[in-house]
Simulated scan of single mutants.
Amino acid sequence: MGIMERINYFFATGFMVGRIKYMPGTFGSLVGLGLLALFPILRSWPAIIITVIVGTLICQQEENRTGIKDNQEIVIDEIAGVFITFAFMNPYNFVHYLTGFLLFRVFDIFKPGPIDYVQDFKGGTGVMLDDIVAGLISGIILFFVF
């Protein structure tokens, strides 16, 4: 693997947490939550759009490199989904963060309705779309609950 592929893999795996054998998506979501806590600007729509575009390109590169569709190690999609979840409100306390995190994970894991449908898209788009929709649904629910 060349240097550019290593850099791509580093970001695709959420700074390597995607390599954790058990629940890599959950750990990737926690990375997203940590990044939001450190850098609240990441919940802004311009930052989210950049993350989604770059994440889609990164996912496509990983799929091209490995030949694996939606490899479990890739968690940049969960990170983007968490950013989207919290774009609808400014979490003020632990309960807000916990509720948003749990909502996102439930929708990401069980993939009801449109979430399941969009993951069938090809390439990096398909990898990212289910988490984008899960984040949108979670964010809207979170907004109305709080």
Score class of each variant (00 low, 15 high):
Gly123Asn: 10
Lys122Met: 07
Val127Pro: 03
Ile132Thr: 12
Cys59Arg: 04
Val127Ser: 03
Met23Ser: 13
Phe11Ile: 15
Ile58Asn: 08
Lys21Thr: 13
Leu57Asn: 03
Asp116Tyr: 15
Thr13Ala: 04
Gly28Val: 01
Gly139His: 07
Leu142Asn: 10
Gly113Arg: 12
Leu42His: 06
Arg19Lys: 15
Glu5Val: 07
Ile76Val: 13
Phe101Gly: 00
Pro114Phe: 09
Lys69Leu: 03
Asp70Thr: 11
Tyr117Trp: 15
Glu63Thr: 01
Thr13Arg: 06
Thr66His: 00
Gly32Val: 06
Gln119Glu: 14
Gly32Tyr: 05
Asn8Trp: 08
Leu35Ser: 05
Gly32Ala: 07
Met128Thr: 09
Glu73Thr: 11
Met4His: 14
Ala47Gly: 01
Thr66Trp: 00
Ile74Leu: 01
Gly113Asn: 09
Phe83Leu: 02
Ile58Trp: 03
Tyr92Leu: 15
Gly126Glu: 02
Asn93Pro: 11
Leu102Trp: 08
Ser138Phe: 13
Pro112Leu: 10
Ile115Asp: 04
Ile76Thr: 03
Met16Ala: 05
Gly2Glu: 09
Arg105Asp: 06
Gly67Tyr: 09
Ile53Glu: 12
Val106Ser: 06
Pro40His: 05
Ile7Cys: 04
Ile58Val: 13
Phe94Glu: 11
Asn64Phe: 05
Thr13Tyr: 08
Ile41Phe: 14
Asp130Leu: 06
Ile49His: 00
Thr26Ser: 12
Met1Arg: 09
Val145Asp: 04
Tyr22Trp: 12
Leu136Thr: 02
Val75Asn: 12
Asp116Phe: 13
Gly28Pro: 00
Asn71Cys: 03
Val31Arg: 05
Ala87Pro: 11
Leu38Arg: 09
Lys122Arg: 14
Arg105Asn: 08
Phe88Val: 11
Glu5Pro: 05
Ile74Met: 02
Pro40Cys: 02
Phe110Glu: 01
Thr56Ser: 11
Tyr22Lys: 15
Phe39Ala: 06
Phe104Gly: 07
Pro91His: 02
Val133Pro: 14
Gly124Ser: 07
Met16Val: 01
Tyr97Ile: 08
Ile3Trp: 13
Pro112His: 05
Ile84Lys: 01
Met128Asp: 08
Asp120Glu: 15
Gly81Trp: 04
Tyr92Ser: 14
Leu102Ile: 13
Gln61Ile: 01
Ile115Leu: 06
Leu98Arg: 05
Gly123Thr: 02
Leu42Gln: 07
Ser44Val: 00
Leu102Asp: 04
Phe39Val: 15
Leu129Ala: 14
Phe107Asn: 03
Arg19Cys: 12
Phe11Thr: 14
Tyr92His: 13
Ile137Gln: 09
Leu103Trp: 03
Ile141Asn: 10
Ile74Thr: 06
Leu35Pro: 03
Met4Lys: 15
Lys21Pro: 13
Met89Ile: 15
Arg19Ser: 14
Gly18Ile: 12
Glu62Asp: 01
Phe10Gly: 04
Val82Trp: 00
Ile3Leu: 15
Gly135Asn: 08
